[in-house]
């Protein structure tokens, strides 16, 4: 794997990793656990995330994965992608394609990922660019819901229930899933580019605004009792909007979300490829094909309401461990030993 990233590409990758797939749904567990103060907790979580990114930037050289941890991460990402594929198929099946067999949809998505991943790495890195305009459209149409929002739903803010606060904070990590890939891709950044707090802050602000809109909108649009019933609040908001030329916005946006999530799947698989084949080496196509065959089979076992529910109710702990705790531990451990990651040649 040999490629270099500009700042724009680097943050674009991170943006797609963090927002893909979960953008339409992470609000439900967050709001139903932490009630009206969800948005405040989310702001706190974003600040924490910014601090973690700063920490990552400062010590990314120490993020050295030995073979064991490489496999830990590879397996973790693989299972992650498999469950997210299952989730994507589940959403598609419940919103737009109820009759189409799951394996066909998974097959198509995995085939796309295979096609993207046997191409040069630059393909996967840059394909997201074409979807930036769609994401703007997403936000613009979401704004149509503004007249229907109930602003009083943001209040009252009571911070006396510590269980709700902790749960809210933990569930916010859904939004920042995949932040550990910052460490994976950081060495590929062009050598002469330095990142200080400012570009990270700008990135953080973009992603923060993007997410906060979704959290606040779903909180103001639904009552708390209601949002417990609505697993994909963002699509549901779009469903209730009507513009003159299109009656059902949700159908379009499910598909926009789908293409956006396909990009995320592509990037996740690229990451596995990067970690597996290492820097500067050319990977074997056979391994990539084999990996994708696995990826086409495993998710089929997960496409069930029960599994999806379990995933929603427990994944934040797993993400918390692998995205934040483990990298920090590895960094601290390597720093203590004084071992640094091999820099890009």
């Amino acid at each position: 794997m040999n490629f270099s990233l500009s700042k724009g590409q680097f943050f674009l990758l991170l943006f797609f990793i963090e927002t893909g797939i979960i953008y339409i749904s992470f609000q439900t567990p967050l709001i139903s656990e932490s009630k009206n103060k969800a948005w405040v907790l989310f702001i706190v979580a974003t600040i924490l995330h910014y601090l973690v990114l700063l920490f990552f930037e400062r010590y990314y050289r120490y993020f050295y994965l030995n073979t064991f941890f490489q496999w830990v991460y590879k397996v973790y990402w693989f299972l992650m992608i498999a469950t997210f594929l299952a989730y994507m198929v589940y959403v598609l099946a419940s919103w737009v394609l109820p009759q189409t067999p799951e394996w066909i949809i998974i097959l198509f998505i995995v085939a796309l990922s295979l096609y993207g991943n046997i191409s040069r790495p630059e393909t996967v890195i840059n394909i997201g660019v074409m979807f930036i305009p769609l994401i703007f459209i997403f936000i613009i149409f979401l704004m149509l819901a503004v007249p229907d929002l109930t602003w009083t739903n943001l209040l009252p803010l009571e911070f006396n229930n510590s269980k709700e606060i902790i749960q809210g904070l933990i569930r916010s990590v859904f939004a920042f899933m995949g932040a550990e890939m910052y460490l994976i891709y950081r060495p590929f950044l062009q050598k002469e580019l330095t990142l200080n707090y400012k570009p990270i802050l700008i990135y953080q602000l973009v992603i923060f605004v993007f997410y906060l809109i979704s959290v606040m909108f779903s909180q103001m649009f639904f009552t708390i009792e209601e949002i417990k019933l609505v697993p994909e609040p963002i699509i549901y908001i779009l469903k209730s909007q009507e513009v003159t030329f299109v009656k059902r916005l949700d159908i379009f946006f499910v598909y926009i979300w789908l293409s956006w999530s396909i990009i995320t799947v592509l990037i996740f698989n690229l990451t596995i490829r990067v970690v597996h084949f290492g820097i500067g080496k050319k990977g074997s196509k056979k391994a990539i094909v084999f990996y994708h065959i696995l990826l086409a089979i495993i998710p089929l076992f997960f496409v069930k309401f029960k599994v999806i529910e379990t995933m929603k109710n427990s994944f934040h702990y797993i993400i918390l461990i692998f995205t934040f705790l483990l990298p920090i531990l590895i960094i601290l451990w390597n720093k203590w030993r004084g071992k640094t990651c091999i820099e890009k040649q």
Binding site: T100, L112, E122, T123, I127, M130, F252
Partner: peptide, 20 residues
């Protein structure tokens, strides 16, 4: 065959091809 899903698949294939 697949409605919008088919179009999405086609678009992604087209884009990957163009980028390659």
């Amino acid at each position: 065959l697949f409605g919008f899903f088919g179009i999405v698949i086609g678009v992604v294939v087209l884009l990957i091809h163009l980028i390659n």
